[in-house]
Amino acid sequence: MATRLSIGEFATVTHLSVRTLRRYHDSGLLEPAWVDEFSGYRYYSVEQIATAQVIHRLRELDVPLAEIRAILATDDPQQRAEVIAGHLRRAEAELERARDSVASLRRLLRPEPADIRVELRSIPSRKVAQISARVRLEDSLRWFSSALDELDAEFPTSERLGPPGGLYDNELFSHGAGRMTVFRPVRDPRRVGRIGIADLPPAELAVVVHPGPHDGLDVTYGRLGAWIVNHALAVDGPVHETYLVGPRDTPDAAQWRTEIGWPVFRLAGTAEGALPSSGAPPTA
């Protein structure tokens, strides 16, 4: 009996509450070493201390209960370590996204610079290699990465005429699903697999460059939208993005540059060229 710890003692040494330990027991994650059949009192062994703390850490990382059971059930330490390492990588990615969201909020509250530089640009027609499909918004990043990987594999650097780009229908953002097109300007576009050839029509665009991580793109979209309301008339048509510098060019997100082009009608007297914004987004 000396090696057995009551649930209260076990809670003290593991820094887990009695309520939490009972929940672990009820869910089958951590059953006591012994339960008194008459009193129902739970007792734990010293060897279970580390297991309880591992479960607690995994729960803090939001690892599902079913996966924790699988981790604890495996006898292969290497496999167990790989599964846990995968969750750690995902947790780190979530933390990075949270930091980017905080940075975006700070830019919204205290935009620097207060004005954005918008250029009215006439884009000529172009023939490009492209992949296009109707995509759900939650799948868009994965689909984009896969499509661009396919284009890059088929058209090496020597065949490319400029940075890659994308066209995104308004309904992708307004209804959560819409047509996405990822393209590359290349010397000799050709059809291979799902890669097709597209003749992009000429377009009149209000263009702004978003610096830094892609998680803050929505902030720049909002500021460009405010500019358009004050200076031009937006039209239905796909939003243009051009990835001047991106993850494939440098891992340093601070160096990334994404060009956003919004289709517009020009108002009378508005010439092509760069114009400052008439104002910044409101601050809270």
Score class of each variant (00 low, 15 high):
residue 4 R to H: 12
residue 6 S to I: 01
residue 7 I to F: 04
residue 9 E to H: 10
residue 10 F to M: 00
residue 13 V to D: 01
residue 13 V to Y: 12
residue 15 H to A: 15
residue 23 R to E: 08
residue 23 R to V: 15
residue 24 Y to R: 11
residue 24 Y to M: 08
residue 25 H to A: 07
residue 26 D to M: 06
residue 29 L to A: 12
residue 30 L to P: 02
residue 31 E to A: 13
residue 31 E to Y: 00
residue 32 P to I: 03
residue 33 A to C: 06
residue 39 S to A: 14
residue 44 Y to E: 06
residue 45 S to C: 02
residue 48 Q to K: 09
residue 48 Q to N: 06
residue 53 Q to K: 15
residue 61 L to Q: 00
residue 64 P to N: 10
residue 68 I to L: 06
residue 69 R to F: 03
residue 75 D to M: 08
residue 75 D to H: 08
residue 76 D to E: 11
residue 78 Q to S: 12
residue 80 R to V: 00
residue 80 R to M: 12
residue 90 R to K: 13
residue 91 A to N: 05
residue 91 A to V: 06
residue 96 E to R: 15
residue 99 R to S: 10
residue 104 S to M: 12
residue 111 P to W: 08
residue 113 P to K: 03
residue 116 I to N: 02
residue 129 A to G: 03
residue 134 R to K: 05
residue 136 R to K: 13
residue 138 E to K: 14
residue 141 L to M: 12
residue 142 R to V: 04
residue 143 W to M: 01
residue 150 E to P: 02
residue 153 A to S: 12
residue 154 E to K: 03
residue 155 F to K: 10
residue 159 E to W: 06
residue 164 P to V: 01
residue 167 L to T: 01
residue 167 L to Y: 13
residue 168 Y to H: 10
residue 168 Y to S: 06
residue 172 L to C: 01
residue 172 L to Q: 05
residue 172 L to A: 01
residue 175 H to G: 01
residue 179 R to V: 15
residue 181 T to S: 14
residue 187 R to M: 11
residue 189 P to Q: 07
residue 190 R to C: 10
residue 194 R to W: 09
residue 198 A to P: 04
residue 202 P to C: 04
residue 207 V to P: 06
residue 209 V to P: 05
residue 209 V to M: 09
residue 211 P to G: 08
residue 213 P to H: 05
residue 215 D to G: 07
residue 218 D to Y: 08
residue 225 G to H: 14
residue 228 I to H: 01
residue 231 H to G: 08
residue 240 H to A: 10
residue 245 V to T: 14
residue 252 D to Y: 08
residue 252 D to P: 09
residue 260 I to S: 00
residue 262 W to C: 00
residue 262 W to Y: 14
residue 264 V to L: 04
residue 266 R to C: 07
residue 266 R to F: 11
residue 268 A to Q: 06
residue 271 A to K: 13
residue 271 A to D: 14
residue 271 A to P: 04
residue 275 L to A: 09
residue 277 S to L: 07
residue 279 G to Q: 03
